[in-house]
Amino acid sequence: MQLTLEFGGGLELLCDSVKVHSVDVDLPAEEKKLTMKHLLAWVRNNLIKERPEMFMKGDTVRPGVLVLVNDCDWELSGQLDTTLENKDVVVFISTLHGG
C-alpha cells in the first residue's frame, strides 16, 4: 500500500532529517486492512533511526505528537483503529518544539 508520511515539529530529526517519506507498507499477515496501529509499529521499525521514545509510548504516539490522516485529526477517525487506504497522507507533528 502506497502511503505518504510527513514528519514535522522536530520529529524528522528521528528519521535522518527527512520530512516526507513515500513508502510502501505491506498488510500485516492475516489482516485484511491496514490500521494506524500497524502503521505506527511499521514506522518504528522502518523509519525511526534514533530515540524511538521521542515518537512512541507503548503502542501509540507519545503525548504531544499530533496525527493527521488526510488532513483530518486522527481523534475523529478512531486513533489507533483508523483504517488506511492506498495513497493516504499521514502527518506526524510534535507540539514539543519551542515556543
Binding site: 510527513e6 514535522g8 515539529g9 522536530g10 520530512k19 521521542m54 507533528i93 518544539h97 519551542g98
Partner: peptide, 13 residues
C-alpha cells in the same frame, strides 16, 4: 516554515 520546508524550529531535544 517551522512545520514544513525550511527548518526554522528549535530542535526539541
Amino acid at each position: 516554515s517551522f512545520l514544513f520546508g525550511f527548518d526554522g524550529t528549535l530542535p526539541f531535544i
